[in-house]
Nucleic acid binder design. Structure first.
Lengths: 144, 144
DNA sequence: CACTCTCGCTTGGTTTTTCAAAGTCAGCTT
DNA sequence: AAGCTGACTTTGAAAAACCAAGCGAGAGTG
């Protein structure tokens, strides 16, 4: 891992590739906002959670806000930014890959569905004109 | 990280979430097949590479084959399976997220393009009927 | 047959990261 | 004041990653 990678995939992993990071993002999608909520649902140790929340805030994935409940002091909460919300498709791609290739023994796992038809959706490439493309119609240009 | 997670995202990260793993897959997409090719392009230490290739083979992402060059003994090479090739969209989602939100200083980074028009493509949800969906039209059902 | 070379691992020792538990601190209630 | 609570910090030990060196099988060379 060099200082700043040219490859976009490597750069994405500099932010998202550490242990727990994407699970923190997943919890944020499922509604966690407070330190204690992330901690109790993930079971991650507190020092790691502190560090991950900090990198996600630095990277602009989460935004730190202050809130105050009645009879309590001011505290921080963490909310997905627009940039963070766009990670939905990354999580969707991971979930649907696993559902296809490493299905769970029981239960359906995490499934992304069409809100209207409730059919499972897939994640795929879409052209600039809004047309789904199959894998063969996509090429990659790498840096340098 | 418990034994076997119910959540599909957590399960995907059990295979793909370790350091270097997705970069090994990326190299496989870019044509690396031999141990030494992965090693020299990634700069990862050999013991880690051995371990990562083994987990990827176990997970069915890579397939180990034997090859023999003239005047050399039989060696192993590693090739993407169908399951591994379907990770293309995961890498595409990561790359396009980074290109949008953490652009590199110079150069274009890694870009997935339409093979015909050469326009950059995006990664998104596609309904069972083949229609692209925006983020709001997708819901998530989580396990249990 | 000895000798060397290469590739794909292994091994050994050091550094870094993760873990679990305990400690800290601000400000609120009693 | 004294105690509580949520969000960190610190501490010390375990696990993983890193680096350099070593190993072994088979092929070629002398």
């Amino acid at each position: 891992m060099t200082a700043v990678a040219t490859c976009s995939i490597a750069r994405s992993l500099e932010v998202l590739g550490e242990k727990w990071t994407l699970l923190v993002v997943r919890e944020a999608f499922w509604g966690s906002t407070r330190f204690s909520e992330f901690q109790s649902s993930l079971g991650v140790s507190t020092d790691i959670l502190t560090a991950r929340l900090a990198t996600l805030v630095d990277a602009g994935v989460l935004e730190r806000r202050s809130y105050r409940e009645e009879g309590a002091r001011e505290r921080s909460s963490y909310h997905l930014t627009e940039s963070g919300r766009e990670l939905r498709v990354v999580l969707g791609a991971l979930a649907s890959w696993t559902n296809d290739h490493h299905p769970a023994g029981f239960g359906a796992g995490t499934v992304y569905r069409d809100r209207e038809t409730h059919e499972p959706v897939r994640v795929g490439f879409i052209s600039a004109t809004g047309v789904p493309l199959d894998a063969e119609s996509v090429e990659v240009t790498r840096p340098q």
